[in-house]
Every structure is written in C-alpha cells, then in structure tokens.
Design a protein around this nucleic acid. Structure first.
Lengths: 222, 222
DNA sequence: CGGCAGCCTTGATCCGCATCAAGGCGCAGA
DNA sequence: TCTGCGCCTTGATGCGGATCAAGGCTGCCG
C-alpha cells in the first residue's frame, strides 16, 4: 500500500479548469492535489469532511474483508465527484487507479449552503445511488459474460459513446468491480473479441466492433 | 400482478401517528393509502413525483429483466422511507410484500424546501446509498451462507436487536434479494438451524440462538 | 538490445450453487 | 374435518465460474 500523501503539492485554484457542467459550480473554492498510482486518497473508516472531484486520472473506491476478499464500489473518471457515500465516516477507501489530479472541497461548506448548492449535492448523491443500484442488478442477476459486456458498454457510454475506449484500470480491478476472478474476466474479454463484438488494440484499449451485439449481451433493463 | 390501486381509500392526515423520529417531520402534510399484498405501489419507468413512508406492513423494490430474472433492491419496514431512487423516473418498481399502509408526499414539495427539510431529504438519500453499497459487497463477494446470515442479522438489527424476529417476506423474495435461488436460501436456513445459530419457531419467525456465531458468519466488514 | 518483473492469457480440474424433481406442510375455504 | 393449493424443504444431478497451474507478453531499465 502506498504511503500517506504528504500534502506538499497542494495548490489553491480559484476556478477549476472545466466549467462546462453543473458540478463545476460546487468546486469554486477548492484545492487541487495529485496522487500517484495506487496511492490512498482516503481510508475506510476515516472521518469524512471532504468531497472530491477527479480533474485528471481515475479513482476506485474499495472495501476489503477480513480475509482479503476485495470489492470495488465504483470507478470515477475525469469530471466525476466522489466521497459522497460518507455518513460520519467513509465506508469505502478511495485510491488512485493511476496518477491523478483531484479537486477537494470541505463537505461542511456544501451541506450548510442553502438553495441551489445544497440541491446540487443532493442530486450528485442521487446519481451515486442510481449507479449503486445498477451495480446491485449486475452482481445479483447477471452472468459473467453479461457483466463484462455491461462494463465495457458503460465505459464507452461514460466516454461519450466513443467506439475506441481506454481502460484506465487493470484486469484485477475489473474483476473486483464485477465480483469475478481475474481469470474469468480475461476469458470473457477473449470471448468477446473472438465473437467480433470488440477488438483489443492494446491490453488496455479496445474498439467496439459491434455496438448492437454489445448492447444485447449487456442485457441492460433500462 | 395486482390491479392498479383505485385511490378510494385516500385519507388526509395532518400528522402521522409516529412522531418519534426525524423522518416524521418530512411527512407532516401527507396522505395515507393502503395496498394489498403484492399490489404495485409504483412501476418501473413510472414518473416519480412522490416519496413514500411505510406506516405499517412491508414493501419491496424490484427490477425484472427481459427474460424474467428478478432482483429485489431493498425491503422497507414500518418507519422506512422509499421512492428516493428516482431521477425523472423510478428505476425500480415498488410492491407491498403484505397488506400495508403507506404515507405519501409530493417530492417537489420536499425538494423545493430550503434549509432543514431539504437536508433531511439528502440525509435519507445518503442512507439509501449506504444500504445499496452494503448490498453490493454482499452480492459481489459473500458466499450463500454469509448472505443468508447477513440477511437475518440485518433484519434483527432493524427490529431493534430483538432475539425473536418475524420474516415479513417469503423465501422467493429473500432469494431475489440475495441473488440466490429459493432452494439455496432454504438449504442455508436449514443449515443455520442445524448448527444451532438460529431456530425457526414458524416458517416466518425465527429466534437467534447464537448471536456471536451469526455475526461471525455474516462476515460484516464494518 | 537483452533481461527482468508485473500483468495477462490459457488450460485443467474442482466446487458451490443452479437446476430438475419429488414430496411435505400449513392454511383457507368448503 | 377434509381437501386442495401455494409455499417450503430435501434430494440428485449439472454447469458456470473459481481455483490451481503454467507460460506469454510488454514495457521498463540497464
């Protein structure tokens, strides 16, 4: 596990670089920090008074059971907000999937804001809830093939529906997100490629060859 | 499936009967409705302008895939609030597990409220998110035995830690909540009883014989 | 350019849960 | 009380994904 962050690279940004979406408004008075690959952003059980936004890079939230079994709660890419799942304390840890730049704001600032700003926080929490519920469906009732297909499709959708998509995370992270083993993920990816649904340009970049076929395999209910 | 509710039993209640918790404050201007066992409270994809609170009975939220596979999102007992998962439309349907009385309030009333009331809605949404995330851990990384043990323990905790607990739902509902089949749920329940962890007084009522053993099997991480 | 380490793929086998099948039990209604 | 139906349990068998095992690829650093 990476060492605790030393906070030497904190910079004050009056305005975040991306201002093209509502979330940006929440982060007007924020601080930017960089995290190395696999570095912890916050720990499980840690007090939660901060909310985060990915500026560049990718983040995973994880929970590890006593015997080492790991579940990834979600992945967050550039523009995404995370850290909202906290009551008094975080129930998941957050780690950088690769070198990342993160904006940070005090949660108490947000929560005490009346009107619009408070409503934006609520909206963001509601979207998190929706994503968690989709995840429940996936883990409860989808086959390994459907899970992997859903994962690739979601990633493409998040990237604006591009045909060529980068995978920021490794196979083990995908497995721990989908509730599978790394071997099963690898086999399903090979199988999807063999069926001409997708095609891997590199280990961590694929092209969607047959979007209709992918959607059918993903078996989305909505 | 039950017929649509005919709304003939709507009554106006100036104050809900239970006023001993914060949630009650949200429902000061609400309407009470009764639903028969298995009756639909709202449908998947249905527009969402209402928020609900269980006064008496039990409710499940469900999502059905094209081929009939069903996943239950959560169960709600007396005092619980549901219907918050909606963006523009509900992503799960809600049905009465047994004859139930439900309080209903317009969501727009809540959302537009500034200050305290708005914050209570956010808090309730955040608790929903926490429950969904626990569900993700369960479905992603727990064995059948751990899932059933967790389920019984959660139910007991929700009922205030009682040793004798009623199961409002049938075995099929439990299976669809835990991502298992009804046969596996039944076998695990028999197994827990054989190991003197719990003891079934009736099909739908059990006693926790060994709380420590149950907690150990549940394998909670927090 | 060569060597090494971490990540990924592929194959063989195993096992937990699903599926298929056959009653048992309890409750409701005659 | 009897009867029937829905719900639940239990047993036998099958299969999807886990586990165990053995390399292959790729990117980094000398």
């Amino acid at each position: 596990m990476a060492l605790a962050h030393d906070y030497t690279d904190v910079q004050h940004l009056p305005v975040p670089p991306r201002t093209d979406d509502t979330a940006a408004g929440l982060f007007r008075l924020s601080v930017s920090m960089t995290f190395a690959k696999d570095e912890e952003i916050y720990g499980q059980d840690e007090d939660a008074d901060l909310i985060y936004r990915v500026l560049d890079g990718a983040v995973r939230t994880t929970r590890v059971m006593a015997d080492g079994r790991r579940q990834i709660g979600d992945f967050y890419l550039a523009g995404d907000i995370f850290g909202l799942e906290a009551g008094p304390a975080h129930r998941f840890a957050a780690e950088a999937v690769r070198d990342s730049v993160i904006l940070v704001i005090k949660a108490s600032t947000l929560r005490s804001s009346g009107g619009d700003v408070g409503r934006l926080g609520w909206e963001a929490t509601r979207r998190e809830l929706e994503r968690a519920q989709e995840h429940v469906i996936m883990l409860g009732r989808k086959t390994a093939c459907e899970r992997v297909a859903s994962f690739l499709k979601d990633l493409s959708d998040k990237s604006g529906g591009l045909r060529v998509v980068d995978l920021p995370m490794g196979r083990q992270d995908i497995a721990d997100y989908l509730g599978l083993t790394i071997e099963t993920v690898s086999r399903m990816l090979s199988q999807l490629q063999a069926s001409r649904i997708v095609s891997f340009c590199a280990t961590r970049q694929f092209r969607i060859v047959n979007p209709g076929g992918l959607a059918r395999l993903a078996n989305q209910t909505l």
